[in-house]
Design a binder for these strands. Sequence first.
DNA 1: CTCAATTTGTTCGTATGTATG
DNA 2: GCATACATACGAACAAATTGA
Lengths: 239, 239
Amino acid sequence: MVSNERVGRSLLRQEVSERIKRYILDNRLRPGSPLPTENELCAALGASRSSVREAIKTLDALDIVEVRHGHGTYVGGLSLSALVEGLTFRGLLSPNDDFAVLSELVDVRELFERGNAAAIISALDGPHLDTLDDLASSMGTAVDADRVVADRRFHALLVNPLGNELVSQLTDAFWDVFTAVAPRLGLTPSDQDPVRLHKAIVHAARAGDSLAFADAVVAHYAPIRTRVAAARHAQSIRN
Amino acid sequence: MVSNERVGRSLLRQEVSERIKRYILDNRLRPGSPLPTENELCAALGASRSSVREAIKTLDALDIVEVRHGHGTYVGGLSLSALVEGLTFRGLLSPNDDFAVLSELVDVRELFERGNAAAIISALDGPHLDTLDDLASSMGTAVDADRVVADRRFHALLVNPLGNELVSQLTDAFWDVFTAVAPRLGLTPSDQDPVRLHKAIVHAARAGDSLAFADAVVAHYAPIRTRVAAARHAQSIRN
DNA sequence: CTCAATTTGTTCGTATGTATG
DNA sequence: GCATACATACGAACAAATTGA
């Protein structure tokens, strides 16, 4: 009696997932907008609660929907949390060469700042530069936890003036993955004169010298790169 | 008998998800390695079938595990498929300014090639350059579908010699998102002399001129940028 | 504050579809 | 064709969280 017109090729929960996405798009919902309850979705889509829930969990993992226990289901924030979780796990799994992912991550993080040198410099204004300088200074006096927070904020503010939301979120995401993976692989933070390395970037930006800016960015990542390479080499010897 | 020491803060399926990830890491499994069956996981983790299945669906969405109907559950390929699906959905949802995501995507795609100009040039060898030339040529004669395939392959091969798996996968991912979102927003491909624009990149690489390479990359994305900007402007007028 | 209503979380039992030998 | 092992799907019941009367 149940409408059984779905062909065998596709899985039901995939269909349900697609239809929930289409529901959001067709109704032009925004992040935070409420979705129908699970039971309403069951009735509307002609699927059991289990299938609807599994579909919702898939969308939840991608931050396309967000589920609040006892409250309801809502359109998600569309963040890059799935990228962070996936890359973090990959970084922890990499066989035989755990540090390859870290090494590649440093390359990409450097690219985002070095490759946008000219655009960043022309977009940075005075107050912004002062904030960056303050953050760099705080890396000398603050305790470890605060220093890490300041570092994350520094690199986020560095690319924010570009006005590219995707670049900003990717910058945060890669920073998050790196700081999540590195310690779990036994890699301690470099902390090699962070104040000077960060201030050099700000100084070059203030001078409007994009070549010096790029050099300062490279210099900033150099000690990190060295530490990763050393750990990588030590591991390759062990194997 | 069941360890019920989980405090209220965490959801059971989250715990199950974490423990499955730890199982993979602790046993040093590789992509493709088989995981215990659902029933075995239920017994091992003291959770019901539904909770285990919902946890697995979460990990499946991140390509951390891969489920084959009637076959079993395996460690996933750890691809960036979740990033592609998430960004694609974001591109289709963006309120009032659908083309902002496309515009940002072009920036990032250009950055990956322009910002790595020097490294790409020094890593490219003769045969590689010949392949790129052939791909560029095929964009003139081939039908639409083949032309798209050639374009994807061209940009993939351009960054591949860097030897950075993450860069290669991100390049593919951003290309996939762009080509998935653009047509659904009514944006037709630019196709403005693709042979010349791509050959110019290869030519600059062959000459070992990283400045010319960067310029050629910018020129390549210029018509795409123009089309996106035009569509964006037209939309802002409508609203 | 307590109670009731709503909604998601979790469990269990059963039946079906799929792949392998 | 058959048997086995596995994931898929359904439905009913109860638990836990949140909100508001």
